[in-house]
Each structure stands twice: as structure tokens, then as C-alpha cells.
């Protein structure tokens, strides 16, 4: 009889869970407790289980991603100076914002924002949430707008797929989520803030380490290339721009430095092989004269 009762309780709650979230479960548990089908202790257990603490990167909220992204951006900006070139920054920002609208994630908590870093190092970096940085060294290696567009689309791809958040160690998230629990508070006690800040700092270390030092997993780079072709293709850019850039990078003099882009990305040849089928499938696009003209104007004077 006891087994039957437990079975009924579990089945009922399973149905409730299917249809709804935890507040209904809580009320469901209360109902069952009231009928005497389950004990108060059992009701509590069920309630706790239904509030399963977050455990994966996918459960980081948009707002938390924004705060992580802000600090990642601050760390990037502590390594490189910003290029003081308003016209070029405006050009990159407008192009990046336009491409983002064709992505699978056109809206993020605080939107997409772009800056050019004043360094000859070849690199492009995306902080979680959509703060994107291109280096002067990279822009100088682009011969046309469509090539630049594919690079911006690649970075937007990293943001869309949350590759930055995916590089956070799982144990880190488990610690943070355990600490946060499901308490309905917005202001934390000093000791909780201290612990959370420690985890936050380690989280930033995981992301910046991947972005700047170790590079993402190769599959993330191929995935971002795939999305770059998809998003830029939707915007009617010539997706062959990706191949043109990668070909430029084969045997580039900066490769010897082993810094930046070369350190953190798969070989250009491998990326070309991976991306070519999708680029070929889309077919070539004639680059409008206006694009060529505005690109030349924007990069004129880059030293």
C-alpha cells in the first residue's frame, strides 16, 4: 500500500513537472501532503528537487553573461590600447551591428559593440554578450569589406554560440550555483560576495585564458567559421572573403611571432578545407562598388 502511495505521488508530480515549473510543483506537493499521501519531509524533498540548482553554462542568465563580458572586455583593454580613429571605429561598428542582425542571436542583454585595438598583432576577440575587438594588424590584412565582414561574423558566431561561457570550468559553475542556491535575494552578505568574487575572478581567468592564451577548442573555431558563412551569407556578403583572409594568413610574417591569432586558431589551411563546401554552395557575389569605395576610405591612413 505504501509503495502504491509513493508511486501515485511520484506519478502525479511527474505530470505536474511536465506541465509546469516549480511553483506549481510546490503547490502540488502541498496538496499531496495535505491529503496525507506523502509526509511533510517528502514534500520538502520533492520541492527541493524541483528547484534543481543550475549546473551548466547554458543556465548562466543574460544579465550574468553581460557582467562576465564587461570584465572580460576590461581585461582585454588592459592588454591593448584602443585605436583613436573615429571614422574607422564607426565603420567597423556599423558593419558589425548590421551583420549581427542577420545572426541567430541579434539581440543580447546590452547589444553588440565594437572597438579597434591599436596593435600590429593579428587578432579578433569577442567577450561574452557581444563586446567585440579587432586589431589594427588584422584590419590591415583585409583587402575588402567582405573579408572584414566575414571576420566580424566569425566573432558574432562565438557570441551566438556562447563559446566564451563554454570555456568556463564546470566545477566553477557548480561552486557558484551551489553558493547562490535558489534564495530570493538580490543583495548578498559580505562573505557570500567575497566567495562569489573569487569564483567570478576564476571564471574570467578561464575565459581570458581561452581567448588570449590557449585558444578555443578547434571545433568551436570551425563552428564560428560555419556561422560566419551563414550570417554574412544572409546579409549578401561574398562569403569567399573568409577564404581570402585565411589564404593571406598562410605563411604570413606574423605567424613566426606565435602570438595572438596564430597561437589561438587552427591552421588557416585546415579552416579553408572545413569552410569551403559551405562557401561554394552559396556561390559568388559581386562586391558592389560602394563597398569597395567605403572600405578604402575607412582603412586609408592606417599605419
Amino acid at each position: 500500500m505504501k509503495t502504491l502511495r509513493a508511486f501515485t505521488a511520484v506519478l502525479s508530480l511527474g505530470l505536474l513537472l511536465l506541465a509546469s515549473g516549480c511553483s506549481v510543483v510546490q503547490q502540488g506537493a502541498d496538496v499531496l501532503k495535505g491529503t496525507g499521501t506523502i509526509s511533510a519531509e517528502q514534500a520538502n524533498t520533492i520541492q527541493k528537487t524541483s528547484e534543481t540548482i543550475r549546473s551548466t553554462f547554458g543556465e548562466i542568465s543574460e544579465e550574468e553573461e553581460y557582467y562576465i563580458g564587461r570584465s572580460v572586455a576590461a581585461l582585454i583593454l588592459s592588454r591593448y590600447p584602443v585605436l583613436q580613429n573615429a571614422a574607422l571605429t564607426q565603420y567597423i561598428s556599423t558593419m558589425g551591428s548590421a551583420i549581427a542582425l542577420f545572426s541567430d542571436r541579434p539581440e543580447t542583454f546590452a547589444g553588440y559593440h565594437f572597438l579597434v585595438l591599436d596593435t600590429d598583432e593579428v587578432n579578433a576577440l569577442a567577450a561574452p554578450g557581444g563586446m567585440i575587438f579587432l586589431t589594427k594588424g588584422l584590419i590591415k590584412r583585409c583587402k575588402d569589406e567582405d573579408t572584414l565582414a566575414l571576420i566580424l561574423a566569425h566573432e558574432i558566431g562565438h557570441v551566438t554560440a556562447k563559446h566564451g561561457l563554454q570555456s568556463i570550468k564546470k566545477s566553477r559553475l557548480v561552486d557558484a550555483f551551489k553558493l547562490l542556491g535558489t534564495a530570493a535575494i538580490k543583495t548578498y552578505a559580505p562573505d557570500t560576495v567575497a566567495k562569489l568574487t573569487g569564483i567570478f575572478e576564476d571564471t574570467l581567468g578561464d575565459i581570458v585564458g581561452s581567448l588570449v592564451e590557449r585558444g578555443y577548442d578547434r571545433k568551436f573555431e570551425y563552428e564560428a567559421d560555419g556561422m560566419a558563412v551563414k550570417f554574412a551569407g544572409r546579409a549578401h556578403y561574398d562569403t569567399g572573403g573568409l577564404t581570402r583572409f585565411l589564404k593571406t594568413m598562410v605563411g604570413d610574417s606574423s605567424a613566426a611571432s606565435g602570438k595572438g591569432w596564430f597561437k589561438t586558431h587552427p591552421s588557416p589551411q585546415d579552416r579553408i578545407s572545413e569552410a569551403t563546401p559551405a562557401i561554394t554552395a552559396l556561390g559568388a557575389v559581386k562586391i558592389a562598388d560602394a563597398r569597395t569605395a567605403r572600405f578604402k576610405q575607412a582603412v586609408a591612413g592606417l599605419k
Binding site: E51, R54, E59, S61, E63, Y67, S78, T182, T197, E201
Partner: peptide, 29 residues
């Protein structure tokens, strides 16, 4: 109703309070 949803998490976790605490330890940023 919301479980670990955006609504339930608004202002929680890695929030301004945590950023301020991190900032205070890293004046160089």
C-alpha cells in the same frame, strides 16, 4: 512561474555587487 529562468535570476549571481567587489580589487582595470 519560473525555475532557473531569466526572470527568477534577474539581479542575482554575477551582478553589479560582484563586479564592484572585483573592481575594488583591480584598480588597474
Amino acid at each position: 512561474q519560473a525555475k532557473a529562468s531569466e526572470v527568477a535570476l534577474a539581479g542575482k549571481g554575477f551582478n553589479k555587487q560582484v563586479e564592484d567587489s572585483y573592481k575594488s580589487k583591480h584598480a588597474e582595470l
